[in-house]
Amino acid sequence: MKSAIVSRSDNAYSHQLDDFSYGLKQGIPIALGYIPVSFTFGLMAVSGGIPGWIAILISLTNLTSAGQFAGTSLIISGKSLLEITLTTFVINIRYILMSLSLSQRIAPETSLLERCIMSFGITDETFAVASLERRDISFAYMLGLIFCPYLGWALGTAMGSAICSVLPAGIQNSMGIALYAMFIALIVPSSKKSGANMIIALVAIAISSLFTWAPFLKQISAGWSIIIATIAACFIGAILFPREDL
């Protein structure tokens, strides 16, 4: 009985190594895709007046695109802590969906601590890759999958921060648009594929415009108007275009 347990755990160890290196391999293309995005993040953060080491700290602790871009742009524009936190949270609510979906697929022997560690690495891309796996998702696999994207995300941020400080002032001024151009690059392709996605984005834009220009409503700050616009547009979307396929 005792020897059976030992050999089982030996076997499990080599399984873990296999899973880890398999995940590692799958993570490399994700990491390569992350470098230009986090490079742009580093550029944007430092051109907005955030020290390079803080930009890198944000990438190391947040590891997300839209949420940290939004949070950082609100830090730059001097918004309140409550607005920064709530906006970042609302954008990250989608991770509940992904984490929910992955939670159904986690290998049953995964411990609580392991679940806590692997969920840190859930991003749109690692989720997409992991959820396409046919097998149960093990801790070792997820750790391997996260490893390269995490390094790539931090490395790109560091490079972007470093480059920014040597750019001429004229370029730095025009870089204010970088963040928003990236948001456009995120929304437009998915709007092309789904009319509902486009309509929801346009409804949110209409509401946030109302909060910017309409008399009386414009007294509400930018951070709050984003939160209200997002919740209202998603509410409308869930009623008009409910999704069957999630």
Binding site: A66, I184, L202, I205, I207, A233, C234
Partner: peptide, 26 residues
Amino acid sequence: FLRSFLYYVPFAALGAMTFPAILYST
């Protein structure tokens, strides 16, 4: 309803953050 609501969050949030803020970014 909840699943659909969560699905639309990224599109709505990115839309609201981009416009009209982009007009004042440069």
